[in-house]
Amino acid sequence: MRLADVLNIVQARFFLPDSVQSPSPSVLNRELRVGGSADLMSDVLCYDMSQGLLITGLINPQTVRTAEMVDVAAILIVRGKTPPPETIRTAWEAGIPLLGTQMTMFEACGRLYMANLPSAVRFAGAPPPDCTAH
């Protein structure tokens, strides 16, 4: 699935720094290998998210930095949240496209999964997911 398809499927738009007019066309062609959603940063790092789409409700700059560490291809922010300028700038500098949709996490993930975006796999060495339950 390409980033351009994501824009269609979840009716997303780009968040760009004020100085930037439009995303470069090659970004739209970026191929997404998998998708994964998380609202906990350490959890993102438990999945093989490389070349994947990170779907999250978090909008602080760490979202981008975390994504950068695992070579995420793009970030989709759900629930119509607008990230602060620092986050937008950090994403731009890291070369990670930052998108937003009005849809809930549930709906965005559901639609993308139905459109054949595979789920990211948990790393073999990572602790079991249920241990994070509070």
């Binding site: 269609n8 780009f14 760009l16 720094p17 004020d18 439009s22 066309p25 062609n29």
Partner: peptide, 26 residues
């Protein structure tokens, strides 16, 4: 903050474009 909804036209241009080289991006 610039939040550009991608216009239908942009999308069409992009769909037709297929693979875009670095030269085209430049």
């Amino acid at each position: 903050m610039a939040q550009l909804p991608l216009s239908e036209q942009d999308m069409l241009v992009d769909r037709g474009a297929g693979f875009i080289t670095r030269a085209e991006e430049l």
